[in-house]
Design a protein around this nucleic acid. Structure first.
Lengths: 203, 203
DNA sequence: TAAATAAACGGAGGCACCTCCGCTTTAGTG
DNA sequence: CACTAAAGCGGAGGTGCCTCCGTTTATTTA
């Protein structure tokens, strides 16, 4: 068996599959956009009919583009990761290396917040569609690595740390309970971590 | 935190929780009975309304007893395991040790068949409610162990095998694809295994 | 045995899911 | 442009989920 299922390949902005008609593309984009908001605010069980309505399309259109809820979740998730990785590049361009790293980590917290919301649905996806996990976690840690290395090379943070250590330090965010003050606590954790990283930097 | 959630404790026939009113107990039993059949034939996504109807109760009654689909699945699953373990004792009493073992393994195949049907829903349960898994897998392998040891002691099968090896041999059944002829193939596997076990027995 | 009360019942109703197919729009072609 | 085939749209409708609450029934008490 050459490839098993071909679940939801097209990441959309790369026209890898087939050129969509302009209106179809527009609708699809809006759906993903709205779904991302809804999933973030209401959890993955957000009503698909509501998503369709807010995107200004019929429920049929939603289902044509995303045959199951999981398809939609996957696309949103990939988009989230994509955004996170892009942000790393942009931040690196526009800020001093250590600031870029800090801002990115704050953004990472947002990302985790989304991911927690998606958790239940993702659990299913990640066991089924295991490439999804390796794909994305690889990309994310890659982004972090380049930020850390850049900051270290610029002397903005100490040189004796490995990006995987930093990643590991952020791990605390995952395991922390989902309390209402989770967001603030995580923010403080990032600041603290940055202090630790800056301490003893040569720059 | 002493105990986390207390999900669906009462296994029913042990009045561990609270004495139910006679009619309530009757309805509950019927629901579980019907659900077991329906899950087996239609998969875990069987319609709950249909289950209620066939059990001759209203949908409200079903939901009072089992607030979520998962609760119902869990009870059915536990009941399945219970039955399997009881069967081990009964068979051991009524048949020569090796025959008992063989019959039980055939029954084990049926059990797996159910479990596969339940797989999707169970996956969720088994990650959430981890005691469920350790509970049941312990009980099952315990039942198998006593059958194997009895047969070995009686000289009906060779003595140089461990029950965990037999368990492991049955593992092939799990991983085998879910083809239509799965049942027959599994049946033959059991026979084959028994031949292997009997070979060289002193009895 | 009759009355009182707590427990259980059941199904209507509201909401979400998803399919199906007649209608509309787009992107080519002459 | 006008025309047409293909692509896309959308929402009605059938089904299942789950809650809520007025009605029924088992059990207790007198």
């Amino acid at each position: 068996m050459p490839d098993q299922e071909m679940t939801a390949e097209a990441t959309r902005d790369a026209p890898s599959q087939k050129r969509l008609r302009a209106d179809a593309q527009r609708n699809r984009d809006r759906l993903v956009e709205v779904a991302a908001q809804m999933f973030a605010s209401d959890g993955v069980d957000a009503s698909l009919e509501e998503i369709a309505k807010r995107a200004g399309v019929g429920i049929g259109t939603l289902y044509r583009h995303f045959p199951t809820r999981e398809h939609l979740v996957e696309v949103v998730y990939r988009r989230e990761v994509e955004g996170l990785c892009h942000a790393a590049e942009d931040l690196a361009r526009e800020h001093p290396a250590d600031v870029a790293l800090e801002l990115w980590m704050q953004r990472f917290v947002d990302y985790i917040a989304t991911k927690r919301g998606l958790a239940t649905s993702l659990r299913l996806l990640l066991t089924t569609n295991s490439t999804l996990f390796s794909d994305t976690s690889g990309r994310v840690s890659g982004a972090m690595r380049s930020l850390v290395q850049a900051a270290a090379a610029a002397g903005k943070i100490r040189a004796d740390v490995d990006s995987s250590d930093v990643m590991h330090a952020l791990g605390g965010i995952y395991s922390a309970p989902n309390t209402p003050d989770w967001r603030e606590r995580s923010g403080r954790l990032v600041k603290l971590l940055m202090d630790g990283l800056r301490f003893g930097a040569r720059g």
